[in-house]
Design a protein around this nucleic acid. Sequence first.
DNA 1: TTAAATCGGATATTAAATATCCGAATAAAG
DNA 2: CTTTATTCGGATATTTAATATCCGATTTAA
Lengths: 169, 169
Amino acid sequence: MQISKGVEWAVHAASLLNGLPAGRGLKAEAMARYHDVPAAYMAKQLQALSKAGITKSSRGAHGGYRLAKPADEISLWDITAAVDGKGPAFRCTEIRQNGPCGLKPKDCKQACQIAAAFAVAEQAFRDSLEAVTLADIAGQVVNDAQPDHLFAIMNWLNAETVPLSDKGL
Amino acid sequence: MQISKGVEWAVHAASLLNGLPAGRGLKAEAMARYHDVPAAYMAKQLQALSKAGITKSSRGAHGGYRLAKPADEISLWDITAAVDGKGPAFRCTEIRQNGPCGLKPKDCKQACQIAAAFAVAEQAFRDSLEAVTLADIAGQVVNDAQPDHLFAIMNWLNAETVPLSDKGL
DNA sequence: TTAAATCGGATATTAAATATCCGAATAAAG
DNA sequence: CTTTATTCGGATATTTAATATCCGATTTAA
């Protein structure tokens, strides 16, 4: 049971986007460089975020990414689901219907007890992640950070961000 | 984020062991046949259960497996951890320390906010699974099943189980 | 003592996650 | 309006982990 590395990168990237000034964007390569990770693979995660409606992108010269909605409407679960999929972690293959004592399909109208228990646990996991938004993360980071570190980030963002075109949003 | 198929098999196998008469055992091949799954791979899961102290095994002629402790002391999390490992699903690689604005190690004494949020969610997941024991599963299954189905299982177990030797326990 | 039977760890195979590349699309400059 | 530089998006390799299998170590019963 592993969460893909892409989820970590995607959350960090989204947090970074949250920090940039209004009306400006950041390209995938810059975000990869900021975190010192392979650019092409970071780009893949950002595509997943755009597909899920978490980020918006604009192509061409001076293109880039920005958040598609307020940070307090983007939960950690939203990002996890966008990158790793929203399917259940426990996949019941109904082996209770197999073998010499297998149940008949008509006696399997309610879910397998084992699968049901895992579904409850996964729901608890999701609920916990849904309760944490990008805004929460950002707030904690700002609180804990040294002032000069925040200043350094601001400077870097000012140098790297581009004003997004009107169409691109 | 996927839970391996082996976990499903292991839980079903453990449930089956819970149903067998006191002092008797069941070999890996029989459990595989009962669920109509590959014997060698089922065996692998049972080895993991034994290693974790959930089952006890005895080798040689008339060998087999049995539960190592009462069913109400074996939780779904115990089995999941035995088969899939107990490591965290979200693996923080500390990319906050990377790149042009990376944090210094001395400023990273407390865990990354993102990793912390995932740790909370995973704890909720574990807590939920720890609250469900094999005894709970067995109780629900017995309640829901048709009497003739339970009878069929009993007959099959009587035919397949072997009396475990004294040493083997 | 012997031999059959079973578990346990080591070994192939397949699927998924990881990483990369190239074409489609867009906007700015000429 | 055309051209060109730039960026995203989907399609394509590579590596890792999950899946499946096999053979030797060990134990018990005959």
